[in-house]
Amino acid sequence: MLARRNRIRYTREDWLVDIVVYIIVGVVFFITSYPFYYSLVISLNNAQDTARGGIYFWPRMWTFASYSSFFGDATWLFGLLVSVARTIVGTVITVMFTMMVSYGLSDRKLIFRKGYMGLIIFSMYFSGGLIPYYMLLRSIHLLDSFLVYVIPSALSAFFIFIALSFYDGIPGELRESGMLDGASDLVIFIRIILPISLPLVATIAIFSGVGQWNAWFDSAFFVKNKGLRTLGYLLMETINQANVPTNAQAALQSMAGSKVSPFSIRVTAMMISVIPILCIYPFLQRYFITGLTIGSVKG
């Protein structure tokens, strides 16, 4: 009956609107997804053949040369391992710290709350710069250590504000009921608050995880040990090698005769860094959308 009514209501105008909407969505989908697809096609085509042009939808001369130039030695596997480790460990620590700190700050009765908030806001707008930051890391012995990937990023002011908005939306009665039952703050947080904070966890996890996955700067500036290089660092290194400056007369030769080209290297690097994120995103998207709208409605 319901289905029949729906059919009757589906007028010509509805069809027309649907068709127009689908066409627009299709065009937008094509415009946004084609660059990724094109990059994938180019990364799988012979670099010399690519220079002839005319490749749009399918590789003309299949090759995995660009990919094998990335994964040709064990360095890349170590890099992958380090990146996976820092992404997992770093994300867990960031989520843990952010949730706990912001939960504490969300309590309006917290002593020196304004002072803490002032410090956090100040750190968001002002930084000491690269050299003082480096010297700080050196003085606390974080240089050349895996910990430099996960400790400095454990707490972010941006994440704290997202979390505070979320906690504002949780009724105070939930906490009070826990207290009436004799639960401590930690028990309330773990047993009551955390289970209803999954959208927040997913939001912070995805922001933090993507940041950790793509990170290369700390690996370049704060780590000398080659065994601790991240995948992002190695990708950056490979892209750099494809960009020989004009004053490097002795090095120009190194590019001649290469089976891969700077362009193919760039698109391959892009695919390698994007594919894992593309795979994870759809599964977290549901939480992510909820998380982004946290605190957007008041009253």
């Binding site: 010399q48 690519t50 220079a51 002839r52 590019m255 080209s261 700077p262 362009f263």
Partner: peptide, 14 residues
């Protein structure tokens, strides 16, 4: 043109 494109033109007949 980037370097790859310019290189490619000479040896592919462009």
């Amino acid at each position: 043109y980037d370097e790859s494109t310019a290189d490619g033109l000479i040896y592919t007949g462009g």
